[in-house]
């Protein structure tokens, strides 16, 4: 009799676990899709509006760099566009991830749901937008006469690293912002500075050689520089740098999960 009840108990736990996992997955996809839809299809022109900011920036920078500063590198247009698309994702996704906790105040206080999903779905909806923007970039690239190259495949691990990095940062920020509300303004400043201190519109080769190392410490520098080398062919990549970017992104991601799990329940009460 006892053994039967033990097996039943195990079966029951297995059932609960699979139920739990399926629930988490459903919640994650539904919330991600809802966020995405709300942001980009809220109005008919929703997606166009979301493109307006990066496109305006692109036009201004393109004129400044090609007309005034005589930047003549081939495919500079694509180089700049890709940089802006990636940076836009970084700034938007970290910002949305940061709001994942305090922005869902009512939900968190009334339902016991895995709160990590709230942050993850905010970041993921931005990531979906990045994927759409990359398709647009691809169309641009075809018109600009960019030719296919096998090394472009290496862009995918980079894309994954970018996602993990941003998710990790979002998780950490979402916890900090509960206690320190003006982190929002502070992070805006960080993003603003980062835009200039990270090679978004200029290639790393323009940076004085002795500074490059310090700039590369910021994983976003590597992600931008390498993805543009891989897709557009401008710049360069080193094996060590590539591994550093993948490694540090993974570390930030794991750190984010650790910090979140550690402080999560405390923050629910402080919200």
């Amino acid at each position: 009799m006892a053994s039967v009840s033990i097996t039943l108990d195990r079966l029951y736990h297995l059932l609960i676990m699979s139920f739990d996992l399926a629930y988490k997955l459903r919640l994650f996809t539904t919330l991600t899709w809802t966020n995405f839809k709300m942001r980009y299809y809220g109005s008919i022109l929703g997606y166009v509006w979301s493109l307006l900011k990066p496109l305006a920036l692109f036009c201004v920078l393109y004129i400044v760099f090609t007309v005034y500063m005589k930047m003549t590198a081939p495919h500079y247009k694509l180089f700049l566009l890709l940089g802006i698309i990636i940076w836009e994702f970084f700034s938007q996704a970290t910002m949305l991830g940061m709001m994942g906790f305090i922005g869902n105040y009512t939900l968190i206080r009334k339902v016991n749901l895995p709160r990590i999903i709230l942050v993850a779905s905010a970041v993921s909806s931005s990531f979906l937008a990045l994927l759409v923007n990359l398709v647009i970039f691809g169309i641009f690239a075809i018109f600009d006469g960019l030719s296919w190259n096998i090394r472009m495949f290496w862009f995918f691990p980079l894309l994954l690293a970018l996602y993990l990095l941003v998710l990790g940062i979002g998780l950490i920020l979402s916890i900090i912002v509960v206690k320190v509300r003006d982190m929002i303004s502070l992070w805006e400043v960080v993003i603003q500075l980062g835009f200039w201190l990270t090679p978004v519109m200029y290639p790393m080769s323009r940076v004085p050689a002795e500074w490059r190392f310090y700039l590369f410490l910021n994983p976003m520098s590597g992600i931008l520089e390498y993805s543009r080398y891989l897709l557009v062919g401008l710049g360069g990549v080193t094996k060590m740098g590539f591994c550093y970017v993948l490694g540090i992104s993974l570390v930030v991601f794991l750190l984010g999960i650790l910090v979140f799990k550690w402080k999560e329940s405390e923050m629910v009460e402080d919200l």
């Binding site: 919640l27 919330l31 809802t34 709300m38 009512t106 339902v111």
Partner: peptide
């Protein structure tokens, strides 16, 4: 909980029930 005023009734049913 989780009703989003910007979404339609139908969308909210699916969202709320998923939550």
């Amino acid at each position: 909980v989780g009703f989003n005023p910007e979404l339609t009734g139908r969308e909210n049913v699916f969202l709320n029930a998923t939550i």
